[in-house]
Design a protein around this nucleic acid. Structure first.
Length: 459
RNA sequence: GUGCCUAUAGCUCAGUAGGUUAGAGCAUCAGAUUGUGGUUCUGAGGGUCGUGGGUUCGAGCCCCAUUAGGCACCCCA
């Protein structure tokens, strides 16, 4: 027993074989749908240049970026004055020039700019990789987690927004998870900010009204006040905060309010078009127009999408939106992108809580061969090769151990069948196949067993 | 970055009012059973009670500090 227990950093996790099986089920489902819609995979490095990431996620985001210390004698190159002043922020820029990626969108923008001449636009890419955030972990929040992103870059068509909604719908329908898709439009929010006379306060306004669900109308108004709005502006905002009805009704009300704002009208037109396409070809999931949906990164310029699980208390499990000029900051202006990101780890937590994982994904080996002695073990090795040649996941207990121990191994590993090989079986050519669930045992030839297991697998 | 809570075996926890050698369940390993698991019975290993200091004749328990973890806020998948 070692005195110092080994551990892993807060907010990170080890994954056991069963967990990997369940996680792969989620990843494979999402990837399958991405591919079905014509998206192509890319990967980018775990670390980016710090300068690529800094300033892209707002002040709060910058703080949550994991920075990587330079190699070598990095302190010798740092400014003595800054070190003396203990100015962490500025010192960190001198001793770190790499960082772990914070999301997949900004690295993708970097990728697009860097490979612009090798890319055919519109470019539809998907990417399933871990990201890291130096946040304080809590429920549903990790410091290392996987995002599954699909983005279309180089196309303004709202058709893309609709396709992304269809992808969301297909994925969650396949996973058996009941969800609500909330959509909004940044242009409408900008129109609202315009309309109440504080166009440059859009970020303050959106982050405040995003909390409506959580803290209620009064607190939101208080916060708006603190963020510098006046009474008139806040009262002008009230009709928007209290929109009621289905999406047609909400749109009607918005039209009445925002008729003076060109940007606002454009946003409404976009929302209308998306809903009109969805009306023709409806999704299985519920889609809601939610004006208080404002979260997300400040680079969104059009649609904002968020998905919540209906039957679990969990933050958003998928989010996305349109960003008109993401690549502009890397020197390639005029390219519009729209994308979504599935939070695989939160989906996992919700599915586990709701018991939505199918049983059969947990099967690793289908059959365990057990023997009584040296001769039988050699014979079993031949049978084992045949099984594997026929695509049956199988293993032979490696040691000459007691029957009890061998069968216990099958039980604990949830192997559904045990093949018992003894001298009698070898002599007759009929091997004893035991069903671990029912306890039934049948004598069959190796070929018959292969057929039987193939049939069993199909069920 | 702010606030609150927790810390005893691999895991989940009990531990009375401060009193001898700190317990249970699960898990692990072995045996009961020389060709049969999941249910039973028996046994074994595993702890400087997160760490450091203090109060006391005596501390797992009380006090202080420190570290780690969890939850909420901020923000976010």
């Amino acid at each position: 027993m070692s005195k110092q227990k080994p551990s892993i950093p807060k907010g990170t996790r080890d994954f056991q074989p069963e967990e990997i099986a369940r996680r792969n089920y989620i990843f494979n489902s999402i990837q399958g749908v991405f591919e079905l819609y014509g998206f192509k995979p890319i990967e980018t490095p775990a670390m980016e240049n710090l300068s690529t990431l800094m300033g892209k996620y707002g002040e709060e985001g910058d703080r949550l970026i994991f920075k990587i210390l330079n190699s070598g004698d990095y302190l010798s190159k740092a400014d003595d004055n800054l070190l003396g002043e203990k100015d962490s922020l500025r010192v960190s820029n001198q001793i770190s020039e790499k960082a772990l990626r914070y999301d997949l969108t900004v690295p993708f923008a970097r990728y697009v700019v860097q490979h612009q001449n090798e890319i055919t636009f519109p470019f539809k890419r998907f990417q399933i990789q871990p990201v890291w955030r130096a946040d304080r972990p809590q429920k549903g929040r990790y410091r290392e987690f996987f995002q599954c992103d699909a983005d279309v870059i180089g196309s303004d068509a709202l058709f893309n927004e609709v396709e992304l909604l269809q992808i969301i719908d297909t994925v969650f329908t396949h996973l058996g998870l009941s969800i609500t898709i909330k959509i909004n439009n940044r242009k409408i929010l900008a129109g609202v900010a315009d309309y109440i006379g504080f166009p440059d306060k859009i970020i303050d306004i959106t982050t405040a009204i995003d909390k409506l669900d959580k803290i209620g109308l009064e607190k939101v108004n208080e916060e708006l006040m603190e963020r510098g709005l006046n009474i008139n502006a806040i009262s002008a905002l009230q009709p928007v905060l209290q929109l009621k009805g289905n999406h047609q009704e909400k749109i009607m009300q918005l039209k009445a309010v925002l008729n003076t704002s060109e940007l606002g009208k454009k946003g409404i037109a976009e929302i209308e078009e998306i809903f009109s396409i969805l009306d023709i070809n409806p999704l299985k999931s519920n889609v809601e127009l939610d004006l208080t949906l404002a979260r997300g990164l400040n680079y969104y310029t059009g649609a904002i999408i968020e998905v919540k699980a209906n039957d679990a208390k969990m933050g958003s499990i998928c989010g996305g939106g349109r960003y008109d000029d993401l690549t502009g900051i890397f020197g390639l202006p005029g390219l519009s992108g729209v994308g979504i990101s599935f939070g695989a780890d939160r989906i996992y937590d919700v599915m586990l809580e709701l018991n939505l994982f199918p049983r059969n994904i947990l099967t690793f080996s289908e059959v365990l061969l057990v023997t009584f002695g040296n001769e039988e073990h050699k014979y079993a090795q031949k049978v084992l090769s045949e099984f594997r040649a026929n695509g049956i996941k199988s293993e032979l207990y490696p040691d000459l151990a007691k029957m009890k121990k061998q069968i216990q191994y099958a039980d604990k590993n949830k192997i559904p069948f045990v093949l018992i090989i003894g001298t009698d079986e070898i002599a007759s050519g009929k091997l004893a196949l035991k069903n671990m669930k029912t306890g039934e045992q049948n004598l069959m030839s190796a070929d018959e067993i292969i057929e039987y297991l193939k049939q069993y697998k199909k069920q």
